[in-house]
Nucleic acid binder design. Sequence first.
DNA 1: GTCTATAATTTGATAGAC
DNA 2: GTCTATCAAATTATAGAC
Lengths: 204, 204
Amino acid sequence: MTKVKEQNTETVILEAAKEVFQHKGMAGARMQEIADKAGINKAMLHYYYRSKDKLFSAVFASAINLMAPKIMKIINTEDHLFAKIENFTYKYIDFISKHSYMPLFIINELNRNPNLLKDAFANKIENNIEQKLVAQIDDLIAKGEIRSINPEQLLLHIISLSVFPVIGKPLLKNILQKDDKSYKQLIKERQTCVAEFVINAIKL
Amino acid sequence: MTKVKEQNTETVILEAAKEVFQHKGMAGARMQEIADKAGINKAMLHYYYRSKDKLFSAVFASAINLMAPKIMKIINTEDHLFAKIENFTYKYIDFISKHSYMPLFIINELNRNPNLLKDAFANKIENNIEQKLVAQIDDLIAKGEIRSINPEQLLLHIISLSVFPVIGKPLLKNILQKDDKSYKQLIKERQTCVAEFVINAIKL
DNA sequence: GTCTATAATTTGATAGAC
DNA sequence: GTCTATCAAATTATAGAC
């Protein structure tokens, strides 16, 4: 009635695994919980993915392949730097708000095992981001439109301002003494105020 | 010869536990590994701390009680806002660089169990931070020294810029295509350039 | 207080019927 | 492909000697 067609079992498992792994991490995740969430039994997990490790790798790769293009698509445009910043912060904060566990999941698992990226994909992020953006920033500095700034630091600033308040929510909420609703409101405001802040900082 | 005196067993255990829990998380930590690192056997862990849960709580409380005062001490001064910002970013980036696993550890475990803070301490962070700082910022806005800005957002900006590049290192290192040494150099630069960036953003 | 040995439980993985 | 039943290993926790 509602659903046109059942997803196949493999996909159902992967979706359940994403949810459990991203919330509990590799070490904390339980195959039984994934099976329950998928509405099947444990044996099926092994039938489709052989081992917990393999299933985890599929989840991790899926997360990376969802995150990385989002960054690139916005940055690799012909827009003016200020427009890029506005675009990126708005859309990226929106995106990670809806997938708030994903960046933390990635950072965590990368800490446990630094060569996960190599396994997950052949460096799709690559230096594309840098090269084009760095050139654009250096150009604006030369023209005297913005202050002199290290382009890599600027990129770190923008990413930090966008990501950290979302993933650090349980801690920051407490520091600011906010309830869930008003903290969410703060994040929503950041979709525009981060860009404003950054542009104020660099504009001449 | 080298050490003047042996630490007592309880402390040795706690130090070993800190290291393991903060790197592996509650779920990934193994009592055996903690015992090995402490140079004793598993039974001793239970003799002193009864259970893994209890030992974890001791580690978590210790982390909170190390982090929280660091923030307050710097912010609760009579300095000018700009000096506070310079002081905070410089010292805080330095501190978390030396304890890079700690903020991630706290955020993670808080995600798994949001009322850990209540157990760990009776809200030592409290609204002290806010009240005084908010008043100071509002005052400077009224005087026309800085742009109009939501003080809470400014606090989020400063914390994000200080903390995220350190805890997100495994991911950001890859995005910027840096090796360990040059990424560390980037972080070192941030001890001064973050404050410069923030002050530029708000100064009128 | 500290150790060895072991119990009790959890959990990833497999065998085998249907 | 899917299930039930079960194994094998890992892991927290305890008992009891010294």
